[in-house]
Structures are given as structure tokens and as C-alpha cells.
């Protein structure tokens, strides 16, 4: 499990508007890569290009390549649905399916595509995914209850369980803790550290301490002004980024002195 992603000369557009310009980076397998930067600088947009969720928005498109194990995800012969099965995603706001029970939510990635799965396999997959998401002990007695009855932090972990039940190679997280209290945030951060043994993880966060705590490498995005495209300013090991970044803009942002 866990593969390397190489991004090369990526330009991201909303119709004619260039949202993110000329990003090149390598995302290492079995590590946590954090993207930080001010609001509107394109880090979420960039994250969504990694599993082709970007193109769900009408008019959105990209130029350049995003290669996973040498295969360009935007190649003509690549199905976005197949990409999304390899690259899972967890969103900012917990979004369990309201009509489904906890168990059905975990199995959603299997059941929604009409895949046959035996009862015992399904039960195993539910337990394994929920254990992986550190939620099993809390919900094992109420698997048949609706997922929306859980607390916000539990719902977010349910969404993580749902994402890893598809057994992706890469897990993208778009500000997964921004709607959660500090205790739930801590639970999710611990989880990220555990998950990195099996998965490549990319996380967008507004919380600098969080990026410093969980990530191995950090990329800083910035935007010159409204209407200008966002850019990847620099990317380095997290320790280096937070102690001695090579760009002035990065240091200003990290120390809270940005414009």
C-alpha cells in the first residue's frame, strides 16, 4: 500500500480563471504531507486535483500532470472513478450519509457500487475499518443506529473509516479538524499518525501547530492578491519549514506576520 505521487507543472483552472499556478511537488509514500497557507490560496483546490474531485465543479479543469506510480491521473485512458477508489478523501465537515446506519456508512464504498460482499466479510471490514479509525469501541454496540446520531468528532472518524474501507492508497484530508473540539482534534491527529504506516496522507490545515505536530513534510501556498493565482511558495521537511524556512513569505506566515 501507499504510493508516491509526482505533480509536475500543474495549473488549475475554474473555467478561464487560473486558480493555482505551476505547482510541482513530490508526495512521499507512507508519510504525512501538510499544506498550509492563507484562505483562498488554492490549497484545497490543489488537494482536490489529486483525486480528480476538482472536475466535479462545472468548468473546472487542469493542465500538467499528476502521476501516481508513473501513471498520469489525468491521462485519457484513466477513469476518474478508478482514481477516486485509489485516492480517498475526508472533508472539512463530517458528512455521513443521513439515511444509513453506522455500519452501512462504513460499507458505503462497497455497497453503493453494487459490489457483492458476504455477510461475514462485511462484518470483518466494518470492524477493521472502525478499529483503524479508533471508533470501534465507541460504536460497536450500536452499529445499526444512524450515523448522524454520533457527535461531530465521532462522525468525522466514521467518515475516515468509510474512506479507508475502500482500501485506497492515498488519503486526502481537507481541514478534517476545523469543525471539531480540541479533544476530537487530538483523536484525529493520533489517528493520522497511526494511519501513515499504511497510507500516504495529504492534509490541508489552517492550524499551524497541527501541521507541525502531524506532518513529515509541509508545503506553503500563498496568493499575491485577489484575482491572482495561488502558488506553491516552498515545500520542505516540516522541521525545516517551521525553524528555518528559506522564503521570507513562509517565515512571515508561520510567525503570524503576514499581510
Amino acid at each position: 500500500m501507499a504510493q508516491r505521487i509526482d505533480v509536475k507543472d500543474l495549473n488549475i483552472f475554474y473555467s478561464d480563471f487560473l486558480a493555482v499556478e505551476d505547482v510541482s511537488m513530490a508526495i512521499e509514500p507512507k508519510s504525512v504531507t501538510a499544506f498550509i497557507g492563507p484562505s483562498g490560496c488554492g490549497k484545497s483546490t490543489f488537494l482536490r486535483t489529486l483525486n480528480r474531485m476538482h472536475e466535479v465543479i462545472p468548468g473546472a479543469r487542469v493542465e500538467g500532470t499528476v502521476a501516481m506510480e508513473g501513471v498520469d491521473l489525468y491521462g485519457d485512458d484513466v477513469d476518474p472513478v478508478a482514481v477516486r477508489r485509489q485516492v480517498g478523501m475526508v472533508f472539512q465537515r463530517p458528512n455521513p450519509f443521513p439515511t444509513m446506519s453506522i455500519e452501512e456508512n462504513v460499507l458505503a464504498g462497497v455497497r453503493l457500487v453494487n459490489k457483492k460482499i458476504s455477510k461475514s466479510d462485511a462484518a470483518d471490514l466494518v470492524e477493521e475499518s472502525l478499529r483503524h479509525a479508533n471508533l470501534w469501541e465507541e460504536v460497536k454496540d450500536r452499529l445499526a443506529k444512524p450515523g448522524s446520531g454520533l457527535s461531530g468528532g465521532q462522525q468525522q472518524r466514521l467518515c475516515i473509516a468509510r474512506a479507508i474501507a475502500v482500501r485506497p492508497q492515498v488519503l486526502l484530508m481537507d481541514e478534517p479538524c476545523s469543525a471539531l473540539d480540541p479533544i476530537s482534534t487530538l483523536a484525529i491527529e493520533d489517528l493520522i499518525t497511526e494511519l501513515k504506516q499504511d497510507y500516504t496522507i495529504c492534509i490541508v490545515t489552517h492550524n499551524m501547530q497541527q501541521a507541525a505536530r502531524v506532518s513529515d513534510r509541509t508545503g506553503f501556498f500563498n496568493i499575491a492578491g485577489t484575482g491572482k493565482p495561488g502558488k506553491l511558495i516552498e515545500m520542505d521537511d516540516t522541521g525545516v519549514m517551521f525553524s528555518s524556512p528559506s522564503e521570507q513569505a513562509t517565515e512571515d506566515y508561520i510567525s503570524g506576520r503576514f499581510g
Binding site: N51, A82, R84, R85, F91, N95, C159, R162, A163
Partner: peptide, 10 residues
């Protein structure tokens, strides 16, 4: 919910 479903490869 649509995005959650797409992201699962549905």
C-alpha cells in the same frame, strides 16, 4: 453527500 459518494469512487 454527492461529493462524499464521488470520493468513495462511486
Amino acid at each position: 453527500l454527492r461529493e462524499a459518494s464521488y470520493a468513495l469512487g462511486v
